[in-house]
Amino acid sequence: MRAADLDAVIAIDTRVTGIEKRAYWQGVYKRYGASRSEGRQFLVADAGGVVAGFVIGEVRDWEFGSPPCGWVFAIDVDPDARQAGVGTRLLAAICAGFRAAGVTKVRTMLSRDNRLILSFFRSQGMMAAPFIPLEMDA
């Protein structure tokens, strides 16, 4: 991930979600893209000089009582570049980074209504984790 790739990442996210979140993405880049430490990763898929997708994650230690594991916070592929294995390669790349950082378990969390991305993670071998997300009105 280079600073020059950020506009393409923002464009993919805007196209997929319908909301441009430039300030948010600049913050994400500062924390994950510019940082090469602490197991943080912000990777982009380069398809002939064009950013076709991205994935972001980091290793977190003892969060939710769990031994260190890799968390995937975001993954997306340009709708025009889907069904070509881009997401699979992005996930494989970030998993390789997690292994290099010494962890062997990868987790993610997303809305149960997000059937497209849930199906993708399922197709990659992910199963339900031994955690239950909860919420309440504060």
Partner: peptide
């Protein structure tokens, strides 16, 4: 039921075969 639906709806036959 919501959790069951989300699980069944996101496992394709191709995934299930794996």
């Amino acid at each position: 039921d919501e959790m069951a639906r989300a699980t069944f709806a996101t496992i394709t036959l191709a995934t299930m075969l794996r």
